[in-house]
């Protein structure tokens, strides 16, 4: 029975109540260390500024590999996320590591361009070696009700990605309702997304727990209907270790163990890594050390 993709109604208050419940989970001791290390390994360390330069990208790549060399057994982040024109630099800088390079594409962040240009943008990123492509959906078309356009566009980009994994950014901050988030998630998944992602980070609000929860539920319903897994990436606005743990609790209780890996879950964030390192250092050394011990690249 295919229950996926029937019109789903969503109760905002009910969602918020469930989130509040996730947030009462008390994550301490071994679970905390385990959770924080996992969260760190799930980070897509991001720089998406107009002022990005080769130098900046190189520094970030170095940081990704050596986030706190004085601490034991720290995982590295999952990926570096940059604009397409910096993929080459990032790829070269990360040559000797397992860290992936993700590139935004498709006229990021607005997505207001032709399919032709979006495809060219994507191909450039992939040709330069991007392992992952973070595309944006056409929110204008979505809000006009042209769902087929949105879907076809995603499928076309997916094809252009080749072996690179495709993350589809819904920009939930512009979709206004949770029902729209659900609908856009379904479109993205059915059109071939490997990951669905909340936000560009350029619009406020970016990732929120209610929005992420609705997306996780969509992924779960799709899995139920087809047996296929889809990944999730909340991006923007998650800057504290505590909040990362709350997201992990939500992930764990909604999708379960199988998704508790950076293969299926990512945090798009720039400052989160530092706070996690700070907390892990506290767990290892027993005291907090100064924020100045952690690099701010």
């Amino acid at each position: 029975m295919m229950h996926f993709s029937q019109l789903v109604s969503i109760d905002q208050l009910g969602i918020e109540e469930r989130i509040a419940r996730f947030n009462t989970r008390s994550i301490k001791k071994a679970s905390k260390v385990q959770g924080l290390k996992l969260a760190l390994s799930m980070i897509d360390l991001t720089t998406l500024e107009g002022k990005d330069t080769q130098g900046k990208v190189k520094q970030l790549c170095y940081k990704a590999q050596h986030i706190a060399d004085d601490l034991n057994n720290l995982p590295t982040v999952a990926a570096i996320c940059v604009y397409p024109n910096h993929v080459k630099t990032a790829k070269k800088s990360l040559m000797n590591s397992t860290i992936k390079v993700a590139s935004v594409a498709t006229a990021f962040p607005s997505g207001n361009s032709s399919l032709k240009i979006k495809l060219a943008d994507t191909r450039m990123a992939v040709d330069h070696g991007a392992d992952e492509v973070d595309m944006v959906i056409s929110r204008g078309q979505f809000l006009e009700g042209n769902y087929r356009y949105v879907s076809d566009e995603i499928s076309a980009i997916k094809e252009a990605c080749g072996n690179a994994r495709l993350k589809v950014i819904l920009e939930t901050g512009e979709l206004s309702t949770l029902e729209n988030v659900r609908k856009a998630s379904e479109i993205a998944i059915l059109a071939g997304a490997d990951f669905i992602k909340t936000s560009t980070g350029k619009i406020s609000p970016a990732a929120t727990m209610p929005v992420t929860y609705v997306m996780l539920q969509t992924i779960r319903d799709y899995y139920d209907a087809t047996g296929k897994m889809v990944g999730m990436k909340p991006a923007g606005g998650i800057s504290t270790a505590k909040s990362a743990l709350q997201y992990l609790v939500m992930l764990y209780e909604t999708l379960g163990d199988a998704w508790m890996t950076n293969e299926w879950f990512r945090f798009g964030a720039s400052s989160l890594a530092n706070d996690i390192v700070m907390q892990l250092a506290k767990e290892e050394k027993g005291v907090y050390y100064s924020a100045d011990y952690i690099s701010k690249d």
Binding site: T98, I99, M229, E263
Partner: peptide, 14 residues
């Protein structure tokens, strides 16, 4: 479980 198109950057076993 279906296979992912590429393996994870670095698997941290929980």
């Amino acid at each position: 479980t279906t296979k992912s198109t590429s393996s994870a950057a670095q698997k941290v076993s929980l």
